[in-house]
Amino acid sequence: MTSGGERMDNYLKLEIPAKSRNEAFARVVVAAFAAQADPTIDEISDVKTAVSEAVTNAIIHGYENNPSGTILLSATLAGRRLEITVVDYGVGIEDVEMARQPLYTSKPELERSGMGFTIMENFMDEFSVVSLPGQGTTVTMARVFDGSLPGKPEQPYGREA
């Protein structure tokens, strides 16, 4: 328990195999960790969704569903700012800019919606992806738990009144 006003600094590191059942595990771990900073229900929900997208991408795209791959998940809390990093050592992304386009997917045959990066960008305040073909992909994202909506003013598409 924190005393009033004390700054909450903490971190976690987690290594998991690229198995789809670990998608739920990863997001629950991050949600439990983030709970130390008193996020709202909506903020936790957004963070869980973003983590799910990053880990699912590592499994499906990075490791192409090969469960022997390894995913590194780390998170830090600095005050009320949560930063999350998801690393895989899989195939990497040839064209990150293209991959970030809404509705773009390299695997339409798997009914991938192409929404993963869009969700991460919209549900978090900060988002970046660094990838080297043949070496892997690192996704870093952050959210400040201040009760406000995530920090992207523009809704890129599909948002209805």
Binding site: S52, T56, E111, S113, G114
Partner: peptide, 13 residues
């Protein structure tokens, strides 16, 4: 209580 883009893709499919 939770759906991500994979659920979305399944519904759209």
């Amino acid at each position: 209580d939770f759906m991500d883009s994979s659920g979305f893709g399944m519904i759209l499919g």
